[in-house]
């Protein structure tokens, strides 16, 4: 029962992420953060950012590499946590 509910939840999450790509395939899918920044530049063309990052990823590929590392490290720990819990539960049963 519980597993079934969890599978449904995973299904909903995947559906929510994929559906846009199917019903709206021709959009650019830019980030909303970037869209807000574009709006500022549009209205304040003279605005000069008074501070710039020390380091910028050299390309979109490098950027997505760092983002995937971030997600992977997080997901790794989540898996470690639940694996450990499961192991303990199993040990307690024996």
């Amino acid at each position: 029962m519980k597993t079934k509910q969890n599978l449904i939840l995973i299904g909903i999450v995947i559906l929510l992420a994929i559906t846009p790509l199917i019903i709206n395939p021709n959009s650019e899918y830019k980030g909303a953060d970037g869209a807000a920044q574009d709006q500022i530049i549009l209205e304040y063309p003279d605005y000069e950012p008074w501070f710039t990052p020390f380091f910028e990823p050299a390309s979109g590929e490098i950027e997505s590499f760092f983002f995937s590392m971030q997600a992977a490290i997080g997901a790794g720990f989540i898996a470690y946590f639940f694996g450990r819990m499961k192991g303990r539960q199993d040990n307690a049963k024996h």
Partner: peptide, 27 residues
């Protein structure tokens, strides 16, 4: 400590995911 690690890892993981949204942008 482990449970704190879990909540931190959850934020760390899913805040890295730019997910497409119906209006044709990502967040």
């Amino acid at each position: 400590k482990l449970l704190i690690g879990l909540v931190a890892a959850f934020t760390f993981c899913i805040s890295a995911l730019k997910i497409p949204s119906v209006v044709g942008s990502c967040s």
